[in-house]
């Protein structure tokens, strides 16, 4: 079985600060991490590899530093990694991103036929959940989003059955391979890296592909040029005009009065 897992390198949003004057994101010093949602996709792919044997290839589009994120994934047990990196990709929205990733997946598939592509549910920065559906559409593969469980894979019969989170319940879907799965969070627990894999991660070369290496000819479909969406404004949320009407409880003595007061205010406003 050959599985491609797509990951994005993102700033650790728990540590992101917004500049109070310029309203811009202060990225300096903020560590870059593997998009946390993507680890659920990776773990699920590794479990299939444990079961069926084969290969898990990591794929990322991003700046050269994203190599580090890919190595991290190899240390968890992925087989190898491709980083598509080119200045021409800068400014890509989801339409352009899915185009570039699809080209790379086709190239990877030329080496060895790909049976499944995994992505995370969404990223913690762009947060659109659009790249998975986009790649599936471009590949012409079956799309399975928000997958909470893989029930069965029949590699010879070329079929897969999964549970998919829907509004108010779970859909059980059966489809054929190849398919693209976007994995729901919290559905599995990432394994610990073994010493062997950590050592391998340090040595294995991460292949870096330019747009030409990825087989991209039409440069009007990538980067800023290939992106229909335009960010027209970035701004801070408006603060509320007045602060809350405050009351203070003194050591419990007036707690009943404070509550009655509050009720009066709520029911008259």
């Amino acid at each position: 079985m050959h599985i491609v897992v797509c990951i994005k390198q993102v700033p650790d949003s728990a540590q992101i600060r917004v500049h109070p004057v310029t309203n811009t994101i202060m990225r300096q010093g903020v560590p870059a991490i593997v998009n946390p949602y993507d680890l659920f996709a990776l773990e699920e792919a590794l479990r299939l590899k444990d079961q069926f044997g084969g290969r898990v290839t990591m794929l990322c589009m991003g700046p050269p530093q994203a190599e580090e994120a890919l190595r991290k994934c190899i240390s968890f047990g992925a087989s190898d990694a491709v980083l598509v990196t080119d200045r021409a990709f800068a400014g890509a929205d989801t339409l352009a991103t899915s185009y570039a990733l699809t080209a790379a997946i086709r190239k990877i598939s030329e080496e060895q036929q790909v049976d499944l592509v995994f992505t995370g549910k969404q990223t913690i920065d762009g947060d659109t959940a659009q790249v998975g559906p986009g790649v599936a559409k471009r590949l012409g593969w079956n799309l399975l989003t928000y997958v909470s469980k893989i029930n069965e894979v029949d590699l010879d019969g070329r079929s897969i059955t999964v549970e998919r989170r829907a509004e108010g319940g779970v859909q059980r879907l059966k489809t054929t391979l190849p398919s693209l799965i976007t994995m729901l969070e919290g559905t599995n627990e990432m394994r610990f890296a073994t010493m062997d894999d950590m050592l391998r991660a340090a040595r294995v070369p991460v292949r870096k592909w330019s747009k030409d290496d990825a087989g991209i000819e039409d440069i009007t479909k990538i980067g800023l040029k290939g992106s229909p969406t335009i960010v027209s404004k970035v701004f801070a949320p408006k603060p509320r005009k007045e602060r809350a009407e405050m009351q203070t409880v003194d050591d419990g003595v007036n707690v009943n009065d404070v509550c009655l007061n509050l009720l009066q205010k709520i029911f008259t406003t």
């Binding site: 989801t94 339409l95 762009g126 959940a129």
Partner: peptide, 23 residues
């Protein structure tokens, strides 16, 4: 922006090659 809407929107926008703003 539900599990149905986001699943469908992503596929439709890609097929139509147009812009889609999320959530």
């Amino acid at each position: 922006a539900t599990t149905m809407g986001r699943d469908l929107a992503g596929s439709v926008a890609t097929t139509l090659a147009t812009g889609l703003t999320a959530d």
